[in-house]
Structure formats: structure tokens, C-alpha cells
Amino acid sequence: MGNDRILLSRRGLIGGLTSSSALLLTGCGESQPPTYGNLLRMGDNFTYAMQRSLLSTTSLVREYDRSEITSMPATGTYDPAIPSTGAHDPEAGLDYAMLRKGAFADWRLEVTGLVDRPTSFSLADIKRLPRRTQITKHSCEEGWTAIAEWTGVPLHSLLSACGMQPTARYVEFYTFDRNADNIDMIDALHPQTILAYGMNGRDLPIGHGAPLRLRLERQIGYKSLKFLRRIVVSDRFQDLGNIKSGWAWYNGI
């Protein structure tokens, strides 16, 4: 077990530093993303490896002017409390309905896993953390795009507030609409990756993921999960749903 831990952490370091060339070579280890078996998923994996090795890990997406903000439909789950919308979890939906009735005063974001200080944040706690506002373009896999202003805490600020451990490889997100997903550390620590509580100068509307959603600007829209309730920092990749349901895990394209 001790040896395993050391191996994992060394791999974590290699992966974190040199990203995808290591990824291609070490291929199918359990701690490597993504655990694909078919041709399409191998193509996704190749795109991930190529984008991670050919593109700058720190490049910023373009930010727009306030005057360029456009309309934006709320798709997927637009209200976890209504059973008919999207992937619904009755229990989580009920929880969500209660929290919403109380204007999310009792809502908490749990941050656990590979952090020195597992923390349960209230919305007020999160608003006291460093704040970033960005006007960016949302690109939906369906083909449409929308420009909106998002205000929130950079994910890296939240993670360092909890004392993220150096073995961290992935950040997992769990939501009130029974979605779950994970991202690698390159995306997690990117300056434009934020947990947004504000949209276009107001509180985040229900349809867009109130009270808190992820904004992952360099990937396709469905990676930016809405209605967050829990974050887990992990040292291994696991398929939290996308691959099982036939979708790409990485969506930089």
C-alpha cells in the first residue's frame, strides 16, 4: 500500500508537469484518464492528448464587452425541483426545493477528498473568497453559443483555501440534478475556471444553475455543471457518467 501511494503521487507529479506525453505513454493505468475501450472513445482520448500537448495550458479564452452580452437559453435541467426537467433525482430535487424556498441560506458546498481542511461553505463564505468577473462565450455541443457575464470564485482560490494536497489529479463535481463530472488539474487551476454565483450582474438564475455552477471556459458547455452541491478532490480518474452514457469526457473541441 505504501509503495502504491508513492507510485501514484509520482505519477501525479509527472502527469501534472508534462501533461499528455506522459498520458499517451502510460496509457491504461487506473489513475489515467479516460478508461476507454472503443474506437470513438480512443479518438476522444487522442484529441485530449493532442490538445494538452499542442495547446498552451494557460491560454485564456477571449473575454467580451458588456455590450456584447446576448440572450442565453437554459437547457438540460432548468429546475432540479421540478420532476419533469432533465435527469431528476427525487431526493435531491426535494432538498433543492427546500433550499430554494430559503433563498439558499441553508445551502452548503462540501469540499472533501485530498484537501488538508475539508470544508462546508455557505454562499456567504464563498462570496468572501477572491472574486472574478468574466464575460465569456458558452459553446454548447448542440451548436449554439451565447455570451454572458459570470461572477464567482476562481476554483484554484477555493481549493487553496481548503489546502489542496499535491497528489490531487482530478476535481469531481456532484450536483442537485444528479449529474457528476470531473476535470483534470490543468483545467481546475486555470484562472478562468470559476464557480459562479452571479450572472449578468445578478444572482445566478435557477435555470442557469443557482446558487452555484461551474464555468469551464475552454471546454464545451455540458462540462460546466450547474446546481453544485459537493466537490471531491481525487488522485484517480473515474468515469462519473459521461463515458458510460456515450459522451466524450474531454470536450476542448
Partner: peptide
């Protein structure tokens, strides 16, 4: 509508 100063930008639930 998203509100004043948003140039008529609006949202709607699908």
C-alpha cells in the same frame, strides 16, 4: 430579460 443594461438579452427555459 436579464435586466436593465443588458441590451434586451433574455433567458428562457427549454
Amino acid at each position: 430579460p436579464f435586466g436593465a443594461g443588458q441590451g434586451g438579452a433574455a433567458t428562457a427555459d427549454r
